[in-house]
């Protein structure tokens, strides 16, 4: 086992889960939140010829999805390094 102690191991898993939940919260808000549940409210706001809710549902959420995964990769690599379990 690469971890110094059981506490380290538990702490690694906790940071992993907390990062995951934060990113999933954003995932939920932009797609289900802005694109579906709040779509009628956001559609009152114009954005370069789009209605904002419609834009999130058909464009915006997808851009955020891509960003989320790359943020996850970056942050997870940092966490791996911090705990000394990175691969090389």
């Amino acid at each position: 086992m690469a971890f110094q102690s059981e506490q380290q191991k538990a702490a690694y898993w906790r940071s992993n889960i907390s990062l995951m939940l934060k990113l999933l919260a954003v995932w939920f808000i932009v797609s289900f939140g802005f694109g579906i549940l709040l779509v009628d409210v956001l559609n009152q706001i114009p954005l370069f010829g789009f209605k904002l809710g419609f834009w999130f549902a058909q464009q915006g959420a997808i851009y955020v999805f891509v960003l989320l995964i790359f943020v996850y990769v970056k942050k997870m690599n940092d966490i791996d390094k911090e705990f000394g379990v990175d691969e090389e």
């Binding site: 990113l23 999933l24 995932w27 797609s31 549902a57 058909q58 959420a61």
Partner: peptide, 23 residues
């Protein structure tokens, strides 16, 4: 607008995959 179900559904699944399953 309803077409968004496919756009969101078929891309959003990758976020779940990347964060919760793949690694």
């Amino acid at each position: 607008y309803d077409g968004a179900v496919y756009l969101l559904g078929w891309t959003g699944g990758y976020v779940l995959l990347a964060l919760c399953l793949a690694p």
